[in-house]
Design a protein around this nucleic acid. Structure first.
Lengths: 337, 337
DNA sequence: AGACTTCAGCGAAACGATTAGCTATCAGGG
DNA sequence: CCCTGATAGCTAATCGTTTCGCTGAAGTCT
């Protein structure tokens, strides 16, 4: 690799002039500029970010740490984030914490060492696992999941509203015995969605049966076994609200394996499913999240911080879910119940 | 941020000693080592990668540039790659060329500037768009798609075999009018799969009708419109081999929109579909690729190169596809014929 | 005891860029 | 003709590490 010195020598100028040409940071006479430009081209000179960053203490790197790369929801976030990061002139360093707080801790330290200019984090731990000032000294935006009492910018969805919308819809169809399969209760998303469900039922003087509320990992397999268990019992619910997209797939598989039909025997509604998820049949009734918008917003906030265009202490942006009606729910009278 | 100098001052030693302790690169007496270690802890010292990399001319970064992040196939690669890269002690910088050669060119230059130690590339251009020595000076592995006459290590699938397997299966079911919707012909994957199809038919003295072979972008929308067009004509094929997973989804949608049923009215087989793609119904008959293995192998080759454990000029590894029978194909007599 | 090894630890020179501050040139005014 | 002011371009310091080569104390051998 050619260095700035090689270019300077070849063009017969000082490195300062080459730098000025590269960064357009001072006036350089047309003649010299031309010499420099040709030298750059002929030597195929590309500045070393390592050196530039050392000097400027900037890395042009933005880290994204998601909770589970195998989940299409996060794959979608990665897609949007890559585009947004590139558009802002940075590059994306990707990490997968795989829903493991230990892995996340290692990732956070790695991000620091790499000297990333900022990071977007989908936190996987309970609020109390983070130090109060965990994110100080590094521009940070929390995406999707909130950490209570934390000092970082946050972009989330209104999870409570999502749960409310989905369960309201099931209630409108006449369902009363409604179950829920939700994620780990220490996560703001799981808790919010369940609260929304309880809200919706309470508004009609109802409450879910304790045995019909089950939480587990945000994974297809976990949902599958929980669903098999719940649906195998005689007083099984007539409708289920599943708190996330991949879990919904597990639930549908469990339902099919039990010889039940969806929606005839059981209605299923879910949240955060990726749009048009691979032609799933029947198409899920679900609340969708504006993933791309949320991700773009997260990066806007982050770049604002990095480039110090902003001083407010903490900004928190909440998006609204939208109910998308598919074919996975039926009015109750179609059921045995 | 504390620097190595601060640590050295605090511990009353030279920076060289601190460095030796950090990297375990020279013997340091237990006493001094202890002083250094406590100083490091008390100052919360973390070495700056920018400086270290400048000195070592290493970045600990591995770039991955995929062709289309919206395609679950590549999302799967990203997932595997992140894990493998982390396991080797590097971090992953992700890029999406979005099947655009221009974007890819910018990405390659960015990767150089970032000083990544190596890169895994899913190339999007025709072979002649690359200079013969395009990848010299940077450890490179091409993944999924080959570039003829190129000098980089390559990990691919036997595309010809994939096409052969899928179409053989359709032929075994009695189909004779078989069509194909495939990707851009300048890509080794598209060409190989189509060649395999032609092989399979030739082996039985058959050849596809010209109008039944159509190529287009590797995207759902492109496949949708091509499929609508092809299936709308009176001499439509009785079976279609679709050259990639997302295209298969588009084709199934087109088939449904035309009021046709799969597999009763038309059999569909595809290649490179992601396993268990979101519960698609009917489940596709397809050739699957060992994506995780391929990605791991690509990174093994890459790290070999980076750490200079290898000297052979070019290594090329070809994986074999496996036919997975789903429910999207039926014997011909079930059809109009 | 003198000569020779050994080796813990230090000092200082890189790495490749940016940038503050300086020099030298030139035009124009008195 | 000299002085001033403007400014194009240079010199050299700097960023935070690693690492080469050196020093000097201690140990070993004859």
């Amino acid at each position: 690799m050619a260095t700035i010195k090689d270019v300077a020598r070849k063009a017969g100028v000082s490195t300062a002039t080459v730098s000025a040409v590269m960064n357009d940071t001072a006036f350089v006479s047309p003649e010299l500029r031309a010499r420099v430009v040709t030298a750059i081209r002929e030597l195929r000179y590309e500045p070393s970010l390592a050196a530039r960053n050392l000097r400027r203490s900037r890395s042009q790197l933005i880290a994204l740490a998601v909770a589970d790369l195998s989940n299409p929801f996060y794959a979608r976030i990665v897609w949007s984030a890559e585009a947004a990061v590139a558009a802002w002139g940075y590059s994306l360093v990707l990490f997968n914490s795989d829903e493991k707080p230990d892995t996340e801790r290692r990732i956070l330290s790695r991000i620091r060492t790499l000297g990333c200019d900022g990071m977007v984090l989908v936190p996987v731990g309970a609020a109390n696992q983070y130090q109060p000032h965990e994110f100080e000294g590094m521009a940070t935006v929390l995406l999707g999941r909130a950490i209570e009492g934390n000092s970082a910018d946050t972009v989330t969805i209104d999870n409570r509203e999502a749960g409310r919308q989905a369960v309201d819809y099931l209630l409108d169809l006449g369902h009363r015995r409604i179950g829920s399969i939700t994620g780990p209760m220490q996560l703001s998303t799981s808790k919010g969605r369940l609260d929304g469900m309880i809200d919706a039922m309470a508004a009609r003087g109802l409450a879910p049966q304790p045995g019909h509320i089950r939480s587990g990992e945000f994974r297809e397999e976990a949902a599958y076994s929980v669903a098999r268990d719940m649906m195998g019992s005689p007083d099984r619910p007539t409708a289920i609200y599943v708190a996330n997209g991949v879990m919904a797939i597990g639930v549908m598989r469990a339902v099919a394996d039990l010889g039940l039909r969806c929606p005839q025997d059981i209605s299923i509604a879910s949240t955060d499913t990726v749009a048009g998820a691979g032609g799933l049949k029947p198409r899920l009734t679900r609340t969708e999240h504006p993933i791309a918008d949320m991700t773009n917003e997260a990066l806007r906030l982050l770049v604002d911080r990095i480039e110090e265009r902003v001083s407010e202490p903490v900004r928190s942006i909440v998006f609204q879910p939208a109910l998308i009606v598919g074919e996975s729910c039926m009015p109750l009278r179609g059921n045995a119940g």
